[in-house]
């Protein structure tokens, strides 16, 4: 790369200096590319510097991700046994069964609630809200996206766990995580709806079709891939959230139970990563479980993101 960038500008400068106004003919006699005015050395150097800065920025994004993934996989794979997925956690040993179930139940509940609220919110913002109301509402959920999750956890703790005397449990965890997911799904819904071509809506309006029909048969149908992708991304984000869980579900070694959604602490994988780690527990068994839990979460996130990609690719192919 540097050889090319360093070598060619010299010749280019000679060409531009030597031929000036008649550069077209002179250049043509030297080489076929000479038809075009030569690129200055300065421009080439500028291009190279900018290219390097971009590559560096990309490396800065990718390096920590790779490092993290390699670290997690390195710690977990060496001691990996498939049966940890079905073995119960017993004190600081055993497997991941209860935390795994806990995470699945908490994440599903949170995404279910968040999806309903967010999709309706997104539809309202995109289709019905106008003027200042719309800006205020949009600002509100964008601010919500910026609130640190631990603050949301604390709010959940103060209002739900303590304020409503629910104690630690499934319900406060689900509610707090759903609040965390709402901005992402709302944003995805709103922007997918906004991308539905106006000509569809106009065509439907001009036929005198009711707005509900247009919404159901045309607008939502075109927006569904975008909304589903938003839901998957939101799931990937909340599934690894730890801070809110410290305040709301806490940890135990029982199975999550829909019959006891309050007053029963529920285990979860992110909490396990933190609580069983070498920072909290200087016990090898526990540390291995912590790494296993991290690996399972990493795989979850990866699968969710890949699924989102597949949906986007699929809908592109079928969009025409």
């Amino acid at each position: 790369m540097s050889e090319r960038a360093g070598g060619r500008p010299t010749g280019a400068r000679v060409a531009s200096g030597g031929h000036g106004a008649s550069g077209r003919h002179g250049g043509a006699s030297r080489s076929p590319e000479g038809m075009w005015p030569p690129v200055s050395r300065r421009r080439k150097a500028g291009n190279l510097v900018f290219w390097l800065l971009c590559a560096l920025a990309l490396a800065l994004v990718i390096a920590p991700t790779l490092w993290l993934a390699v670290d997690i996989i390195g710690k977990a794979v060496g001691n990996w046994q498939w049966n940890v997925l079905v073995t119960r956690t017993d004190q600081l040993q055993g497997g991941l069964l209860q935390p795994l179930l806990g995470t699945l139940v908490i994440a599903s509940g949170a995404i279910l609630i968040a999806s309903i609220v967010s999709i309706l919110t997104g539809m309202y913002l995109s289709e019905y809200a106008t003027g200042p109301l719309r800006s205020v509402l949009r600002g509100a959920y964008e601010v919500l996206a910026g609130i640190p999750s631990i603050v949301l956890g604390l709010v959940g703790y103060v209002t739900l766990v303590v304020g409503l005397h629910w104690g630690y449990g499934l319900l406060p965890a689900v509610l707090v995580l759903s609040v965390l997911a709402i901005p992402y799904i709302t944003k995805a819904t709103e922007s997918s709806l906004a991308q539905v071509p106006t000509s569809y809506r106009e065509g439907a309006d001009a036929l005198g079709l009711p707005p509900s029909w247009t919404m159901r048969r045309i607008v939502l149908k075109s927006a569904v891939p975008g909304i589903v992708t938003g839901v998957l991304i939101a799931t990937a984000i909340i599934i690894g959230e730890t801070a809110p869980l410290i305040y709301t579900s806490n940890f135990s070694d029982v199975n999550p139970s829909l019959a006891h959604v309050t007053h029963l602490a529920v285990p979860s994988l992110p909490y396990m990563v933190y609580y069983f780690s070498f920072l909290a527990q200087p016990i090898k068994h526990a540390n291995i479980l912590s790494a296993d839990a991290a690996l399972v979460l990493l795989v979850f996130v990866l699968v969710l993101i890949l699924l989102g990609r597949v949906i986007v690719a699929w809908s592109r192919r079928h969009a025409e």
């Binding site: 071509p197 000509s199 569809y200 106009e202 065509g203 439907a204 309006d205 001009a206 036929l207 005198g208 079709l209 009711p210 048969r217 045309i218 149908k221 075109s222 969009a319 025409e320």
Partner: peptide, 21 residues
């Protein structure tokens, strides 16, 4: 009723705009 009005007064646009179905 605007829906019925638009049924009675149809419209064709500058660019064809078939629905995605």
């Amino acid at each position: 009723e605007v829906m019925e009005l638009r049924r009675r007064i149809g419209m064709l646009f500058q660019r064809p705009n078939p629905f995605p179905m």
